[in-house]
Write a protein that binds this DNA or RNA. Sequence first.
DNA 1: GGTGCCATGTAATAAGTTACATGATTCG
DNA 2: CGAATCATGTAACTTATTACATGGCACC
Lengths: 171, 171
Amino acid sequence: MSLRHAVLGLLAESPSSGYDLLKMFDMSLANVWPATQSQVYGELAKLAADGLIQVTEEGPRGRKEYAITEEGRAELRRWIVEVEPNHVRRSDMLLRVFFLGQVDPGQARAYLRRQAELAAAEVARLEELARTLEGNEDDDLAVYGRLALEWGLRSSRMQREWAAWAEEQIR
Amino acid sequence: MSLRHAVLGLLAESPSSGYDLLKMFDMSLANVWPATQSQVYGELAKLAADGLIQVTEEGPRGRKEYAITEEGRAELRRWIVEVEPNHVRRSDMLLRVFFLGQVDPGQARAYLRRQAELAAAEVARLEELARTLEGNEDDDLAVYGRLALEWGLRSSRMQREWAAWAEEQIR
DNA sequence: GGTGCCATGTAATAAGTTACATGATTCG
DNA sequence: CGAATCATGTAACTTATTACATGGCACC
């Protein structure tokens, strides 16, 4: 049920329309919890039905602005502090590693080299993103988003180094 | 479509029944691509219908042993070397980080401390697992599984250190 | 007047989880 | 003979993806 809490979390920051939320998903949550348009609109309807958010304004073109309710805020806090993050993580990148014995060693090394390159590119992308965000420490989302970004950086660097190490192991 | 390739990969190693595969999923792939019983049996039926695997033996209690076909092996190799791993990764642990401004700083720090502890426990679990597996380098799965295990170790250590760092940032 | 963006929704499909349902065989 | 384990399958539900469908408004 994390999509629900992602929407709730964004609305806790500021009232927004589905369209606004979609942009926020693409800009700030894309690396952590991507969501599609159809998911967002559907979830907004359910959250409103459950009283966790409300329509506060209707604008042009059928625009509906939603705001979080007190009940919604309580639910968000409960989720943050009481619900254990679910630690199951699927990785088809690692799944392929298990089966690298099925291809020849040259291909296996090439696969790992490619993963190292992708990770290096990701490090560059995130470093660039960090520069873009620099100084923008106004809202909570930006402050705590930086912590998440740092996680991404460390994770990508780790993957780059692991892949290089793993390639070495295949002889 | 990774479940399909996970099953194919295990069958490439040795012919097995659904029941056998389920145990392999729980033992070796649990951290990388978990699967449930109903998924495995369903996928076996589809793979057989598509000619990528075949029933090679019927045992007691309706046991059906499946083996990969040449077609299946080709598809597995194609997937390993030609299909780009999908790099989207959802993390409700990091999603909560974005919204830590919604709870008080003490709770935010407690959250990060808890994540550091969970990561430390995971490091211990994987180190123990590495010791258990030591010397067992007979089959490809064990050899390449070690590479995946190393990824898990590095990842958990990174997370432990990141969480400790992040907790420090909240003042 | 037309292009681009704002804005919302639905439908179909795929993937994953949980629960239900059943029965055979082995071993002590 | 009873318990544990082996063994397979189906159904209901939830979550996520992709595609379809529609139309208003602003600005040039």
